[in-house]
Write a protein that binds this DNA or RNA. Structure first.
Ligand SMILES: [Mn+2]
Ligand SMILES: [Mn+2]
Ligand SMILES: [Zn+2]
Ligand SMILES: [Zn+2]
Lengths: 144, 144
DNA sequence: AGTGAGAATTGGAATTATTCCAAGGAATTT
DNA sequence: AAATTCCTTGGAATAATTCCAATTCTCACT
């Protein structure tokens, strides 16, 4: 396992507290579900996964928790096509590769200097706070 | 005016014919509305604009026409956030700058060599057919 | 330990954006 | 001009998300 048991909820609690929010079982499980399988699930998919641990959770709460995690900068919301929003707990600068065959989405790490280069196409007067890059195409089944 | 009168519908008709489709008043007006004001309108906004020329058009037809134009590669559909799909008739390779203050979206031309550079971050096994780049931030009111 | 205030969760209704569908109209082919 | 196919239309249906009011939970204070 990549984290010591008990450590993750505490880090989450800290981040939430920083925003004046409470740690709750619902928020913890939603977040852990995102970390467990980083496949950019929709709210519905998160709902289904969370239910196995917390069968009484509601879909409204899943939406609330996801929104909270996004506000705390623990999760990014991703919209690269019409359809439900997807959620990504990878906080490193990265692009998304959308494999049209399988429908799956892969994270592609972005070197900071590339992001700088991309920013340089902006004419004077534009100040970008964030950049999103999405690739679309086919990925070999085994691609890392 | 940038095009000789009568020329635009013919170019459109040609493109449609290439795909085995017919030119219709609805398709022509939807397309001309997109070209007239390149502000990435939603289907609803297109609907409102088209109505001034063709008050009897239906929203379903606007959706149909937009989809048709996208299929013919005369228009790109754009989704960079939750919310309605937007439509862009700019066919040059370009990125989108989303100004958070005003909510408006600006086209940013992309030099081909930058796109090449960006493609180079893809590990082996990834073959990108298209790349979308979206900036988010603030633009000075007069920014080109 | 008990109470009250505020925070969070919940189920269901409402809203938004889009798609589906069946009927009618227009263009093209025979 | 009849048949065929394409296109448009209004309304119903669907999908995703947000809203809302009622309950439940948590925490600080007594
Ligand atoms: Mn969405
Ligand atoms: Mn949309
Ligand atoms: Zn990601
Ligand atoms: Zn554009």
């Amino acid at each position: 396992m990549s984290t010591t048991p008990g450590t993750l909820p505490e880090a989450l609690a800290q981040r939430l507290a920083d925003s004046g929010l409470r740690s709750t079982p619902q928020r913890e499980i939603v977040y852990s579900v995102l970390l467990a399988k980083r496949d950019h699930p929709t709210a519905d998919e998160v709902f289904a996964r969370v239910k196995t641990d917390l069968p009484t959770i509601s879909l409204a709460t899943v939406y609330n928790c996801l929104e909270t995690l996004v506000q705390c900068n623990l999760v990014r919301s991703v919209n690269f096509e019409r359809g439900p929003t997807r959620y990504c707990p990878n906080l490193r600068p990265h692009a998304h590769f959308h494999d049209e065959q399988s429908g799956s989405t892969h994270d592609i790490d972005l070197p900071p200097e590339l992001l700088e280069q991309v920013k340089h196409v902006l004419p004077a007067g534009y100040d970008a706070k964030s950049i999103e890059i999405t690739f679309r195409g086919k990925a070999q089944p085994g691609a890392r």
